[in-house]
Structure formats: C-alpha cells, structure tokens
Design a protein around this nucleic acid. Sequence first.
DNA 1: GGGGTTGTTGCGAAAAGTTGCAATAGCAAA
DNA 2: TTTGCTATTGCAACTTTTCGCAACAACCCC
Lengths: 145, 145
Amino acid sequence: MTHYRLNYLNLIREMGYRLTPQRQIILDTICEQGGHATAREVYERVRQKTPSINRATVYRVLDFFCELNLATKTELNGRTLYEIVGEEPHHHIVCNQCGQAAVVPDEYFNELTAHVWQQHGFKAELKHMVIAGVCRHCQTLNPNT
Amino acid sequence: MTHYRLNYLNLIREMGYRLTPQRQIILDTICEQGGHATAREVYERVRQKTPSINRATVYRVLDFFCELNLATKTELNGRTLYEIVGEEPHHHIVCNQCGQAAVVPDEYFNELTAHVWQQHGFKAELKHMVIAGVCRHCQTLNPNT
DNA sequence: GGGGTTGTTGCGAAAAGTTGCAATAGCAAA
DNA sequence: TTTGCTATTGCAACTTTTCGCAACAACCCC
C-alpha cells in the first residue's frame, strides 16, 4: 500500500491537481480496505478517522480518482464498487445465480480489442469489465438454464 | 414497436407474471423513446401520460423487464440506461472524449466467451456490454493521449 | 516567509433511487 | 359471472447521490 500511495500522491500533483489531506485520507482508506468497497463503506471508515470530512467530498474524491485512472468504479449486481487500480489490469466474471466473482486477466480481451481496432479504428481502453454469466458450480446445480 | 409489444406482453403472461396496465404503459414508453433512456426519462414520459403511476413502480418495472431479458440496464459514463432488447444481441463502443457511441456485433466477444469457458467453465451471458475507449475521430484530434 | 490565485471542501438542500407494508386488482378456477 | 389467491401497486419514509455556493487552503511566485 505505502509505495502505491507515494506514486499516486505524486501523480495527483504531476497532473496539476492539489494534494489535499482529504484526498490522502480517502486514498489511504480504500488502500487499507483492499479490494472493492462501496462509497458508503469508504465514507464510514473515513469518518471514523476524520469525522469532519463531508460525505459529498468522499463522493467527489472517489470520482476524481476514477478520472485519474487511479481507481475504478464498477457496477456489480446492483452495488457500485470502487477499487484501487493495481499494476495488473484485470476484469471479473460474476455468476448471476450465486453472485460469486472471480478475476480474469486482461489478455482475454485481446481479440475483442483487435476487432474494434480493425473494424472501427476504435482504441479500446478496457478498465474493469464485468462479465455476467453462470459459474461452473451453478451450471451443475441447474443444468436446465 | 407494435409487434415487439405483442410478443413481449405474451411473454410476460407466459412466464406466469401479471400483465398490468402499468407494465404496458412503461413498455410502450421505452419502445416509443427508442434507444437508451434513463429511469428518470422514462418516469417523466410515463407520468405525462398517466400521472398516477408511482416512481417506485417505474423503477421496479424496469428491473422486472431486465430480469425477463426484455430490456437491459447499462452503465454508460455515469448514467444508468435502459434499452429494449431487440432480436440481435449487440454491444456498444463509447468514446471517452466525445461520448459518441456505435454498435458492435456480438461476434466480437466470441473469443472472450471461449476463454472464460475453457479456463473457468464459466458460461458467459453477455447482454449489453459497453467498451470504453477513444474513437477514430478523437484520436486524430488528440494524437498524444 | 507572505500574498494571491483558484482548485477544493463543507454545508445545506434537493434529486435520485430503495424499501416495507397495506390496499388493490390480475387471472385462474368454479 | 363471481370468488379467492397472491402478485403488484401506491404510499410514505428512508438512504444514497448530486449540486450550488461561500469559505478555505494548496501551491506557485516573489
């Protein structure tokens, strides 16, 4: 977490934005939390450390991090989740039935990226895709669907 | 729109659900609107025709349509959009800079689907994916990014 | 170190979206 | 056509998210 934090804090300044204590605290919080977290979860943790930070600020800072590609915002079965972007880009497969999620590597999307590039001249920037479907386990339980 | 509507209304009943006037009106509305619409837009149009329909009902019915695979719910740069599912499954590429969207066919995802199937035994059910990136036009404008 | 510029924050309020519950009304069966 | 079951709706309260604006404070420059 620590070295992430340093890189990220520099990044914010290098991009011409200001490094405020609120941004540092919120960044630390989502790093500590690890993995996904909803805005509400982040806010709860932040206010425990620093109650003066406003809820609106948490929302704004989270979106700010997303704009800098420092974090991602993902819709995962109804909940909006934020996650720090690590060095390895990755995506998720999520079972529609049991809700279990697993990580899949970026390479799976290579052909897709190539297609849109060749056919549309479109430079895909896949960040944190969610692939819905049915996991192995639930398929054996309900072979009909 | 009309023949869609008939099929869809039958579908609802065949699945054992009830065909209420609210569901018909909301279905008509998103058909009329065509393309994407936010819940709020649908609600506004619905209330113009039939002010007695409650906001909560619109939200519930839209999600109900999604569960029947009659519509899809998509997150598109911050807005939650609903769209009627046509016969052709399709997806979108959306430019991060100008916001322009284009349709891409389902086949582009074949290799991706094969990967998660082979590697994870996961049966992907891709409904209405959104691929973010930069379109051809914006690339020529800003060759740096 | 002190001062000015302007990006950020806190605050209050409004908008958007969700939930539980009692009342209503589809629809199947008599 | 009437009856009964229960899925669905409207209502009201609640949570989540957004917005405008005045006050604040990072950061640059001297």
